[in-house]
Design a protein around this nucleic acid. Sequence first.
DNA 1: GTCTATAGGAAGATAGAC
DNA 2: GTCTATCTTCCTATAGAC
Lengths: 199, 199
Amino acid sequence: MARMPLAERRRQLTEAAIKAMARDGVAKTTTRSIAAEADVSLSVFHYCFDSKQALIESVITTITDHYVTLVKEALRPRATLEETVRAGFQAYWDHVRAHPDEHMLTYELTQYALRQPGFEHLARRQYELYADAYTELIEQLRRDMDVRLRVPVPVLARYLAAMTDGLTLNYLVLGDATTWTDILDTVTAHIAGLVQDDP
Amino acid sequence: MARMPLAERRRQLTEAAIKAMARDGVAKTTTRSIAAEADVSLSVFHYCFDSKQALIESVITTITDHYVTLVKEALRPRATLEETVRAGFQAYWDHVRAHPDEHMLTYELTQYALRQPGFEHLARRQYELYADAYTELIEQLRRDMDVRLRVPVPVLARYLAAMTDGLTLNYLVLGDATTWTDILDTVTAHIAGLVQDDP
DNA sequence: GTCTATAGGAAGATAGAC
DNA sequence: GTCTATCTTCCTATAGAC
């Protein structure tokens, strides 16, 4: 097989692991299946990573950074506050609908990290970065537009992150059998009310 | 060992499984560890359940019903709307803080069910029952008090269920390092505004 | 760096005596 | 119904040649 620098192989295996885990779930993904997905032999895997745990650590940080970028891109400021909220949620939501398995994987990895001794910090990092993304957005809105807040920034940021998280998980489990559009409308109107003081 | 009717042994093993899974996580809980927790031999396990999957099905339905009862009890109607929201969240939240591992387990089981072919309906049932609990509460409030809604009942119920779910998961990951009390205050004020029309 | 082959262990499930 | 002992399978990780 084609030779490759260590760092690049690591990236390739990490990507292969994400793909396999999104498809089959974390529990059913073995080092063998990851090696097969990357089309390398099992020994190459262990040449690049000391253990399966070391790979999973790489998977968690990679996918977390990937999703934080996604959320920040979706929630970037737009012309008006209402448009920011609506377009932001729409962009985020389109991604969830297009890649449900990947979003599912983020939840599985959170729980893996919380249950694995020494990995708890990875789960915390994941959720802190989500909240940070919202914090950044809120601060930006406060500067660029005339937005006043009913609640302190960290409280609002964490609340919004948790709400996004809960709605996403709810969608992954139940789908949109009920009128999910209505729910999103409720959310956006709701958030606008929470963010901006009444005149 | 003491003999026991089949149905009772099943209950005993199911409870032992819940205890072991809450403590060690679903992934690390084996049929052997469950049998040890229940203080029976491995063969007794397989005498009661055809497979590990059959036991997990029992675990999921049991713990789901248990938690739905809990939520319904926490969210029962009280004197005023505001008191209902505040006391309800407080009661629910006290339980989360007292038993984080059990709540964690409910998330793990959801994901197990979603990944296990033929078990998806158990995950859906879990989340439908959560939404049903909120639906019941809302209907009751509409009857008993003079509460008008800005949004349809199913939309509101599902939204509230998702929000509760997201906040719980967020707490399980991050703890209450930030001012969690403020977040709960925000939530309760927020919900009251969403539920009741301005006069 | 990559390969084949295999060590070593733990899991789910079964056999058959009591 | 419950037990001990074992079968079978599949996993992570390593050894050693190329």
